[in-house]
Design a protein around this nucleic acid. Structure first.
Lengths: 185, 185
DNA sequence: CAAAACAGTTAAGGCATCTTAACTCTACGC
DNA sequence: GCGTAGAGTTAAGATGCCTTAACTGTTTTG
């Protein structure tokens, strides 16, 4: 019913997840994360970083002393790692199993990494390792799948047990004329 | 680099996608979509609906005359259908292929439906129909996969070509002590 | 060690989305 | 055909996340 509203109640927002990952990356690569480095890496202003730090601090995800470096707390670190793992699993699944182009895979993974539940991430990891393995069924899958049809055959409404009245594929790929949709300001 | 920032530049936001779907559903089920119906179905105030309608109208996604019914434009309708299809495909994939619990699958699908690119949705549809089909490989997959390990074996850093230094699964499921993370206000 | 260069913060403001409160329409009962 | 219930709108305010501009603190350097 109101699941959609919980979008704004995730433990961290999309922005927050990326700030946390950035701090983790900087810490790993340079040994410390400064406001300016974070701003550069994310492409936002330093004042934006300062205020986000305040917000992350209020949630117990980072610590920071004025004019000093930013550190992840244990929860912040956990969240950063989990998001990063989720992204890696998603990207691998999209490229290696679904065969989606790398750039699209990375963009999609970036968008949804923090929204996918651990349950689903774990299952994605499982199916990805299974289908990449040398298990005979995995090998057969790779051969058979790449030869499988890219779309369902033309079918009457109701003929396909997945599609129902209208072909799912059609509605996923159809464009409105040639006019691209207006992009949000 | 800045992919993460395009989160706010999707053609429609999470909220907008749900408003569009709600209008489509009401139109289908009751023949018309009124402000109050939309507000009830989404669990928001009527004034919230009014202002979102203004915003959707500015993007050419709905039409609405004062005190009247809300209608989807062709682009709005396309977007609503696409989002709905994306959600159906995702849910099916998560439940039927990954075997994730229905409730979790629906929540995750609701969160990410509008963020998944058509390319990925189409491939998800393809793999889902393939693995649900009576193709011999699909049958073998179902048998073999359900018997496959739920986690990678204990392994040294670098031993698993997917995990790298730390086990992905570990970082996906690990909790910080017993303390649940603070939820966003 | 002082001045300049650089890093970080605060303040003020914009946009999206939501809320409540108060107002305005519309339409039905009589 | 008018009054009122209820549907819808506007206005004002909150929050999250971003910006620019102006200020403050720190560090480098000559």
């Amino acid at each position: 019913m109101d699941v959609w509203k919980r979008f704004g109640e995730k433990e961290v927002s999309h922005s927050m997840a990326h700030y946390l990952q950035t701090v983790a990356t900087l810490k790993r690569e340079k040994g410390h994360a400064r406001v300016g480095d974070i701003a550069d890496m994310l492409g936002v202003s330093k004042s934006g970083v300062t205020s986000m730090i305040r917000s992350l601090h209020a949630r117990g995800l980072v610590s920071h002393e004025k004019y000093g470096c930013v550190e992840l707390t244990p929860s912040g670190s956990l969240l950063a790692e989990r998001t990063e793992s989720s992204r890696r699993v998603l990207t691998m699944f999209l490229t290696d199993i679904l065969g989606v182009q790398a750039q699209v895979a990375e963009e999609d993974a970036c968008m949804i990494e923090h929204l996918v539940s651990p349950e689903v991430s774990v299952e994605l990891l499982r199916i990805t390792s299974f289908l990449r393995s040398d298990h005979p069924v995995a090998k057969q899958f790779r051969d058979a799948y790449h030869a499988s049809p890219r779309s369902c055959a033309e079918h009457a409404p109701g003929a396909c047990d997945m599609c129902g009245a209208t072909c799912l594929r059609e509605s996923l790929v159809r464009e409105v004329g040639d006019a691209p949709l207006k992009v949000r300001a």
